[in-house]
Design a protein around this nucleic acid. Sequence first.
DNA 1: CTTTAACCCTGGAGGC
DNA 2: TGCCTCCAGGGTTAAA
Length: 292
Amino acid sequence: MPELPEVETTRKGIERLALGQALLSMTVRERRLRWPISNALPQAIANTTLAKCERRGKYLLLGFDPAGTLLVHLGMSGSIRAVPANALWLTHDHVQWVFSGGICLRYNDPRRFGSIMWHPTEAGDAQSHPLLSKLGIEPFDSAFDPDYLLAGLKGKKMSIKQLLLAGHVVVGVGNIYASESLFRARIHPAQSAADVTRAQAVRLVAAIVQTLTDALASGGSTLRDYVDATGEPGAYFELYAAVYEKNGQPCRVCDTKIKRIVQGQRATYFCPRCQRPRRSTAKLKRSAPCLD
DNA sequence: CTTTAACCCTGGAGGC
DNA sequence: TGCCTCCAGGGTTAAA
C-alpha cells in the first residue's frame, strides 16, 4: 500500500519533526515483523541523534549518529506517525521512538509485512546493505531516461508490467502505479519487456515520473488506510486512478471498459483499446502505413 | 543466469 | 448474528 510517494511523504514528515533531535528512547512492543527486530536494538541505538532522513526505493534510512542507521520498510500496511507524548498504544502500534523535542513517533503495521533493521556504523555505508544493493535506479534520478530504461529491458522476456514491479531496473513503481504508468504510456501490460520500442520507452519514462510526481503532490496514494507521518490522513481522495481497480468501468479516454488481468499473481488494470498490443514488425510491413 | 511461485499477515468483503 | 473463504499488497527466498 505505501508506495514510493507515501514513503517519501513519511520521510519528509520525520525529517521535519525530529531531525537533529536526540533520541530519548526506543520501545519495541512487537518484534515479529518481516524479520524479527533485534532485542539488542534499543540498547544499540541509545544515546544517538537523528542526523539523516533518507530514502532508497521504499526503504527509509534514518541515520542515528554515531551508532548506525535504521532501515525501515512500511511493507503493505505500515505507517509512521507522530502521536502526543504518552498517547495510548493502539492495536498494531509496534514501535515507538521518543525524541528530545518531545516528538513521539509510532510505527503501526497491522499486517507486519514491514521491517525495521539496524545497520551499525562499523558495518559501513548503509546504502551497501544487501537489501538495498540490488535496487534499481531512483525514478527521480536524472539518469533515469529512455536509454537507461531500454538497457534495463534488453533481453528480458517477462512482461513490462512485472519487470517494473520487480524494481531491479527502476524502484518505486508498485502495483497501483505500474498500471497507471502503463496506461499513460499506452503500453499493454503483457507486452514483453524486450519488445518495448524506443518510442514506448520515451513515453514510459515520462509516464512513470509524471505519475509518481502527481501522487507525491497529492501526498500519497488512493489507499484507504494510509496515514502520513504527522498523523493526518493522506490526501488520497484527490488522486483518482485512471485504471486501477476500475474493472468494467469506461476508460476516461475512449470509454472502452477497463479490463483486469492477473500477472504474477497480481492484479493489473488496463484499457484494451488505448493499450492495444504493439503490432509486430512483420505484420506492420504488410499493413497500411501508420499515420500515428 | 532468468523466471516463477510460495510465503509472511491481518482486515475487510461476500457467501451462506 | 457468525463462520468460512477469498483477496489485497511488497519483496525476499526457494525452487524450477
